[in-house]
Design a protein around this nucleic acid. Structure first.
Lengths: 390, 390
DNA sequence: AGAGCTTTGTAAAGCTCGGTTAGGATAGGA
DNA sequence: TCCTATCCTAACCGAGCTTTACAAAGCTCT
């Protein structure tokens, strides 16, 4: 009868919970005085004061310039540590990888970003990542608190392992976070790229304060990240949201996962390129297809219709399945142009339960994976440090 | 910049959190002494003692018979209040409705159940529900703490409204929980039946302690309830999990929701009956189809294959989408018989990502909706009373 | 320059809660 | 009767939040 619970709850935990709440508030308010936090959090002034002191001592906050004009005594502003603490974001992707360093404020700049071409072997990838990370770590002003590795494919976040990555085979069964952790001696966490994009959108983007939203990437693969009830939907192993390998056409072509007719083979930019290539009878490129579509070539009309239909079904599925308040869709061919996306949305309207659709605003969107990786490590640090109450 | 938070956190909240944890433990351990709770919870003995006293005073617990044989002083057992508190469960369903009264222990018996045929009009339904509820309330030994109404269809749990119910049209746009609340003067909450089944399975069934599992009902409709991270997956309006109206065949027949080729029209017992009827060229019944299948009649082989295929796709979808550790499937024709279900599972194996499937055990299952409704109200009471830490 | 106003931040006392310690209560067995 | 094992709680302590009170810091007006 072992129903043991891990963390007995005492007063110290209460403090942690409150400090975490303050951290999350400061994340939203950027730079704020103790008095401002008092108003925003509903806690009392002394509580806030002591908690802020504690957070300052822990190096999670910094004093910032008290440029404040108003009546009364000017407040001493605090912000998330941007100089005294540093986190790394690692993005492994098709074609290019990048590594970025930032403070806890998540301020990502080109100056703090290093890019390189994705190598052919995993060993070489690791070497590159290590080298670039070390350079950024050497240049960092603050202590390194950890890194997040953002990858495409199917990711087992519980085991911290990439199950398989149809477009980036060198990642199959690999564990870059643990490998980097060994090499660099800092905490590393592996997250699916759509998970990181969700976190980023919630911390820094258009999903601030939203508790239920989703992020759909239909460029090369068909990736989905879902934030539900203010928490990342993970399932038992962090593989929840694998819509890409759901059967859309039982008789469709074979997918990299072994199944037939997966959304990934029917509703992405890559799928559209493949269909147009079949129509043309020769290989083609995303750029060429984009041009053909822009010129309203009849050679791709059928393909556009097919992919639009399946994309609409996919979007409808997300809305019906997760009932989000916002859905961010990230893609090129069918999402970038306003009228083509409107066409897709028209089909979505026919495929979605009205009430779920009424809840939901669909936004074409491109957020940065760099920013996502940073959001990922910050989320991980906060989450493992203190629980939240719900 | 109003980022106000509802409940400031102080010492009283800490107490609530701990009392809630104890409540949930007692729910699992049925009848347990303070010392047993101390061991199971990790809290200290005095803390447990004080919390139990508080719960006793609030009427959420009762002393129970100290039948305990062991070394040392026998403990004084406590259990969830079964005599001093009463909750009602209301199940509205196709054909029959029932109302059941129970203590907080969730002990559902035939003696405390009242059944009646589902009337033709909503007004008559309400009258019936009110009458039966009043009878049970009059007979109840404890104070009434609330009721949960369990319904099929698409339910907006945020607005507490049934959006539409394809098989029970009299519920469309209705709000039986609020209506009953007005008539009976007790707290009522409306939940989708699969939500209640999830809760029931977690509290009393085979999902005790599981944090990620799902409940799929493929009898008349195609209903899904998901428990993710220990919380019911709700989305913004509690409509998450609406797999039933997801497009499985873009050219399929029209569904009650207006869309074409929904799972609900392809992967349920009702769908199988419809297909067999088409094959026979005349109307038929579930019973007749069951007999035909048992006799391995060739007249339904094709239909069984089609529905099995779509059911497999649906099950695969649930596993890929929510990555549960267990999936409970509730149905008649394809689930009840071991070999037919094995056939479906074989197809699921071909449709599911291996790692997600490896995480998941699929269990054919029939849990009681009565028990679900009781679980629903108890969950609601606990949940609105005290938060949990995560 | 100084009084007055306004807002900020914190020190001190008090309350609540969980933890610690210690001791009484209740059973069976020697 | 005494001992052992276990259960339960009273009394006190420390952590953390709240209330109260007050000092600090800037602005405006005289």
């Amino acid at each position: 009868m072992a129903v043991l619970i891990d963390n007995p709850i005492g007063s110290p935990l209460l403090r942690l919970i409150n400090e975490r709440r303050l951290l999350e508030l400061i994340q939203q308010l950027r730079s704020v005085s103790r008095a401002g936090l008092t108003r925003a959090s509903g806690m009392t002034a002394p509580t806030v004061s002591k908690a802020v002191d504690s957070l300052l001592k822990r190096g999670l906050l910094e004093e910032s310039d008290p440029i404040d004009q108003a009546l009364g005594r000017p407040g001493r502003l605090v912000r998330l540590a941007s100089e005294s603490a540093t986190v790394l974001g690692v993005v492994i992707d098709l074609g290019n990888c990048c590594v970025v360093a930032s403070g806890l404020d998540g301020n990502v700049t080109e100056a703090n970003t290093e890019r390189f071409e994705t190598p052919d072997t995993y060993a070489s990838l690791l070497d590159n990542l290590e080298a670039h990370c070390r350079r950024l770590m050497a240049a960092a002003t603050g202590t390194i608190r950890g890194a997040c590795v953002s990858v495409p494919g199917v990711v087992n976040e519980r085991l911290q392992e990439i199950v398989f990555s149809p477009n980036l085979h060198l990642l199959n069964s690999r564990n870059p976070a643990r490998d980097l952790e060994k090499r660099l001696g800092i905490h590393c966490v592996l997250l699916h790229e759509t998970s990181t994009l969700c976190l980023s959108e919630r911390m820094y983007g258009n999903a601030k304060g939203l508790r239920d939203f989703a992020m759909l990437d239909v460029s090369t693969g068909f990736g989905l990240g879902v934030m539900s009830g203010g928490h990342l939907l993970s399932g038992h192993s962090g593989m929840a949201g694998e819509l890409g390998h759901l059967t859309a056409d039982p008789n469709g072509i074979r997918c990299g996962c072994g199944n037939r007719g997966c959304f990934e083979t029917l509703a992405t930019d890559s799928a559209l390129v493949r269909l147009v290539a079949e129509q043309l009878g020769r290989p083609t490129t995303l750029q060429e297809v984009a041009d053909l579509i822009r010129n309203r070539s009849s050679q791709c009309e059928a393909a556009v219709n097919v992919v639009s239909e399946y994309l609409a079904i996919g979007i409808a599925a997300v809305i019906n399945l997760y009932n989000p308040t916002s859905l961010f869709v990230h893609g090129k061919l069918l999402v970038d142009s306003e009228d083509r996306f409107a066409m897709v949305l028209e089909r979505v309207r026919q495929r979605t339960l009205t009430p779920s659709l009424a809840d939901c605003t669909i936004v074409p969107n491109t957020s940065s994976k760099r920013q996502g990786a940073i959001a990922g490590i910050i989320h991980h640090l906060v989450n493992t440090w203190a629980p939240s109450v719900r």
